[in-house]
C-alpha cells in the first residue's frame, strides 16, 4: 500500500497546468475581472494561445467566423467559455505519451477527456438540466488524478488484469484495494494544488460515487458520472478498466433520463468528439 506522502511526492514531480490556467481560475471567480484581464494572462503564453485558438475554432464552439486573437475569442465566446478552452488547451500539453498503469496512450486519454466534456454538456441540454458553470472543464479534468497514480499502479498491472477478468469489481474499487486510494481522491488533491475551481475539485473527487458527495449540489458530478460511463461504452479512449464500472442508480433517478435520451446524445456528439479528439494527436 502506498502512503499519502508518496502520492503527494509524485504530484510534486508532475508537469503542472500552465500557470495561466490557475490565474484564469481566480479571474472567473472574481466579480470585478474584465476581458482585458483575461487577455493579459493568456497572451504571454504563445503555445497556450495557439492551442486555445485551434480549439475555439472547432465546430463544437459554434463560431461563425474564425477567431484569430484571444481578445476576439473573449468577445465572441465570453470569459467562462474561454476558461473552458484555456483549461483544455493547457491540459492537452501535460498528458504524458503513455499513461502508466492504465495502458493508455496520450491520444486516448485526451479523446476520453474531451468526450466526457462534450457528452456532459450535451446531456445537460438534452435533459433540460440547468448546468452549473464550468461543466465542460469539470468533465475534461475529471480523471486528472490518473496522471499522478498511474505509476503506482504500473507494478500491479498483472494482478489488476486478473481481477478485472473476474468481472466482479469495478476498476476504481480495485485501485482503492491495491493502493489504498483512488484516482478520484488523488484528483481532488491535484486540483486543489493547481488552484482549480471548486467545480473541478468536486467532480474529480466524486465522479465515480456521486452519492457520497454529501450536501454539495451534485448536478455537475451527476452529469460527468453519466458522461464518463457513456464515453467508455462508445470506446472513446478505452483503458485497462474497459467497461468495469458501475452506474449509480440514484443519478439516473435524479437526472431523469432513459435510454432514448442517452442514444440521442450519443448520435449528436460523435462528430464533435472526433474532431476535437484528433486535434492534438
Amino acid at each position: 500500500m502506498i502512503t499519502h506522502e508518496q502520492i503527494l511526492g509524485k504530484i510534486d514531480n508532475l508537469p503542472t497546468l500552465p500557470t495561466a490556467v490557475a490565474q484564469l481560475s481566480r479571474l472567473i471567480a472574481s466579480p470585478t475581472s474584465s476581458a482585458k484581464d483575461f487577455e493579459t494572462v493568456i497572451r504571454p503564453d504563445p503555445s497556450l494561445t495557439a492551442n486555445l485558438l485551434r480549439l475555439a475554432n472547432s465546430a463544437y464552439f459554434g463560431l461563425r467566423r474564425e477567431v484569430i486573437s484571444v481578445k476576439q475569442a473573449i468577445t465572441l465566446l465570453g470569459s467562462k467559455r474561454v476558461f473552458d478552452i484555456a483549461a483544455s488547451a493547457g491540459f492537452s500539453k501535460i498528458i504524458p505519451p503513455r499513461l502508466p498503469g492504465y495502458g493508455v496512450p496520450s491520444a486516448s486519454f485526451w479523446l476520453h477527456s474531451i468526450a466526457v466534456a462534450v457528452l456532459a454538456e450535451r446531456l445537460a441540454t438534452e435533459l433540460h438540466v440547468k448546468a452549473p458553470g464550468l461543466l465542460f472543464t469539470a468533465g475534461l479534468l475529471h480523471d486528472l488524478g490518473k496522471l499522478a497514480i498511474g505509476s503506482f499502479l504500473e507494478n500491479e498491472e498483472a494482478s489488476l488484469r486478473d481481477r478485472l477478468a473476474e468481472e466482479s469489481e469495478s476498476f476504481v474499487n480495485l485501485e482503492k484495494e491495491i493502493l489504498g486510494t483512488d484516482h478520484g481522491e488523488v484528483g481532488e488533491e491535484l486540483a486543489k494544488l493547481w488552484d482549480l475551481p471548486e467545480a473541478v475539485i468536486w467532480t474529480a473527487k466524486w465522479h465515480h460515487n456521486p452519492n457520497d458527495a454529501g450536501d454539495i449540489d451534485t448536478t455537475l458530478v451527476d452529469l460527468v458520472h453519466i458522461a464518463d460511463a457513456m464515453a467508455h461504452m462508445f470506446g472513446y479512449g478505452a483503458d485497462l478498466g474497459e467497461l468495469s464500472r458501475t452506474i449509480d442508480p440514484n443519478v439516473a433517478q435524479r437526472l431523469n433520463f432513459n435510454i432514448h435520451s442517452l442514444e440521442a446524445v450519443s448520435s449528436e456528439t460523435e462528430t464533435q468528439i472526433r474532431e476535437m479528439g484528433e486535434m492534438f494527436n
Binding site: 468481472e167 469495478s170 460511463a229 457513456m230 467508455h232 461504452m233 474497459e242 467497461l243 468495469s244 464500472r245 458501475t246 452506474i247 442508480p249 439516473a252 433520463f257 432513459n258 435510454i259 442517452l262 442514444e263 450519443s266
Partner: peptide, 16 residues
C-alpha cells in the same frame, strides 16, 4: 455489444 455493471439496465445500449 458489451455493457457496464448496470443491474437496472439503464445503459443497455449494447444489448439493444
Amino acid at each position: 455489444g458489451g455493457q457496464l455493471y448496470d443491474d437496472k439496465g439503464t445503459f443497455n445500449i449494447g444489448k439493444r
